[in-house]
Each structure stands twice: as structure tokens, then as C-alpha cells.
Amino acid sequence: MTFDPSVWRVRPEPGPLTDPTDSGVLDGETVAVKDLFAVAGQRVGAGNPAWLGAAPVEEAHADAVDRLLDAGAALAGIAQTEEFAYSLTGANAHYGTPPNPRAPGRISGGSTSGPASAVAAGQASVALGTDTGGSVRVPAAYQGLWGIRPTHGAVADGGLLPLAPSFDTVGWLARDAATLARVGDVLLPADTTALPDPAPLVLSDALLALAAPEVRDAVGQLGRAVGAERIDWAPEPGWLAAFQVLQAAEAWAAHGAWLADRMDTLGPAVRGRFERARSIGAADAEAARAAVGRARTEIRARLGERVLFLPSTATVAPRPEDAEAAREATMLLTCIAGIGGLPAVSVPVATASGLPAGACLVGPAGSDRALLELAGRIQA
């Protein structure tokens, strides 16, 4: 198998980076780990060669990695991420853009781009990644994969390089719902919120309208097939802006001290985001934090015990020249679960032209396992 440096940073051949323990529900599974998680004996590269060069060798696995290996999975390798996970396109200025096996010539989606591409190509069965603003759900939709962003804080993040702790979550992708759920059996705590049976699914025309026609049609068709009730609900103006300001302020708090005199080590798109991030004052950051808090309360109250059904992304995987233009429209959709701190599962759908897209199930906080079970029933 040819080593693709846009997909993998560490990919030993032959065989995996770690041997399986043959000890649990993940026996036979192989995991592509996003290059933000500590792997014993390796460095965390964060998609940036300068950071990689200065990083220490890790002495222990990140919590999530450790639990997957203890459950019998083998570590296929360390897969690429966009720099510091601060993007959604999949393009890394230093290592390239991982291919999209399901939509050749189109972007892979990020920032869990390398692990997702590895799973879509059959080089691993599980992608361990992160989702702050959509970094699991976007590549899942673009590459026809199943992916979950858990309830904020549900999965231990020890040994994970942060971006914006108010929104960072440990997430994962797989080619089928059953594998996605088995990983959940290992990483997720018991649910603290039960979904009614049957789970009340709701679909908002205003949210559907944020997506391009081909995505809107595919998601709407599935929504009707599963009996989702139409509701009148739309995100408030200013929610996305507050999310982005707080995310940026926290990203600079996490990495600004190191980046202050190393901005030239970043690719243009990510550098532009960090330049804006360091210009955010304390008052603006606190105002954004307050706005996010109010929005979280409203989103949770409006959703209640229902499951919101919406597009995972606003478009199918765009071509590289259109990638940044599609980002803002998609974040209008992905920020809802992020602001709410809610679990979200991306279910693959296909457009009329055969391109992959995603339908997203957003459930109440603490309903992660039930949401995975519901996704599996939808697949069946």
C-alpha cells in the first residue's frame, strides 16, 4: 500500500503501530488517530511541522486512545489534521489535502481529514478525531461515513491538544452504524437522558433552507421517510458570530504564546484565523461567552427531549476552489450542536447525482448511546 503523506503522518508497514490485545468488543478493528492525541513513543504534530519539531515524545497514550486499545483495537497509525484543527476543508498547507475516495476531485473535509480519508479508503475501520465546529460531521458527510460528536465533556479528553475547550469534543467515524456504536460502547458513559420510544424527530424548514438544493432534497426525503415532524425553528442571528469569537479567543489562549512569533509557520487560511483570534479583546470574548451561554440555554429548552433532524453540511464536498466559500454556510448548521453542547450523529445519505451528503441527528445532552441506537435503526 502506497504511503500518502496527506493522509498519514505515521503509518508503519507492514502491520499496525500497536498490536491488538484481542481483549474486547473492538477485536479486529484498526484505528486511525488524529494527530492531536498523545500516542506513547510518538510526538503530537498538530498538522504543523514547526510544532512537531518542538514537541516532546509522549510517555503515555491519550485517554481515548488507551481505552480503544484496551478494548482490542489496533492502532493503524497517526493521521493528518489541518493545523491545530482550526479549519473544516481538509487542506493542510504543509502536507496537502487527503483524497476523498467517495467523491474524487472534491475536498475531504476537516479537520479530522486524514483519519476520515483513511477509513473511507479502507485503510482503517475507525477514525478517532475531534469535533469543535464540525470537524467530525463535515468529513463524515463529504465522504459518506458515519460520525458522532458526543455530548460536550462526555468522553475523556486527557492527552488531547485543545483548540477551544468550550466546544472541543472527542469524536469518531466509521463506515457503518454498528462499528460507530461499538466504539461508543467503549468511550461513552451511560446515558443520563433517555429518549422517548419512539423518539420524536423534528425537522425545520428554515434549517433545511440553509443547504444547497441537492443536499436539502436528500435530507428532506430521509426526514419524511422516518416521520420527522415539521417545526418552525431557526437559529438566531448572531449565534454563529458569538461561537466564532469565543472559539477564536480560546484558540489564542491555547496556542497564542507559542504562535506569537511563529505565525509564519502557518498556512494562509489558518494564519488568517489566528491573526483575527489574537485581535479579540477580553471584553469581546466575555460578551461572546455570555451570548453562547444564553444560546445554549435556548437551544436545549427548545429541543427538550426531541431529536433535531438537519443537514450535516450545507453542500456536498466542494471542489478545492470553492472550499472556503462553503465553510460559513456549513457552520450555520454545525454550530447548533456545538453551542448546545449536544450529541450529534451524521448519517450518510446520497444526493440525486450520487454524491455523498449527511443527515444529522442532534439529541438532548446525555442521550449519546440512545442517539447511536436511533441512527442504527434509521440505517436498517
Rank of each mutant, 00 (worst) to 15 (best):
L75K: 00
P356C: 09
A326S: 15
G53H: 03
G129M: 07
A103G: 01
R327N: 06
A74R: 03
A257Q: 14
L17E: 05
V33Q: 08
G114R: 03
P268C: 06
G256A: 13
E328S: 13
R106D: 01
G340A: 15
G341T: 04
H94V: 02
A64I: 12
Q42K: 12
A317C: 10
L163W: 10
G72D: 14
A93P: 01
D35L: 09
L180V: 07
A127F: 01
G158W: 03
Q379H: 14
L372H: 09
G129Y: 01
A277V: 04
V347D: 08
A359C: 11
G53C: 06
Y95I: 01
A357L: 05
V347K: 08
M263T: 10
S367E: 05
A370E: 03
V44K: 03
S166D: 13
A103T: 00
R67S: 12
L374K: 06
A228E: 01
A211W: 00
G281A: 12
R271F: 03
E29F: 14
I378Q: 09
D261A: 14
D157Y: 02
R175A: 15
A73Q: 06
S166C: 11
P16F: 02
Q123M: 13
L75Y: 02
L75M: 13
I107K: 03
P49I: 09
F167E: 02
R273L: 15
F3L: 14
G105M: 09
G129N: 06
G358Q: 12
G24T: 12
G267C: 12
D35E: 11
L374A: 10
P320V: 07
R296L: 04
M331F: 04
C360Q: 15
T334R: 02
A212M: 06
A140Y: 06
D191Q: 03
L203W: 00
G366A: 07
V44E: 04
T151I: 11
S312Y: 03
R43M: 08
A118T: 05
M331Y: 02
A64S: 13
A60G: 08
A251G: 12
Q247N: 14
T30D: 10
A177S: 15
A225S: 15
C360F: 00
D157T: 07
A85H: 03
D232P: 06
G41P: 00
G358M: 09
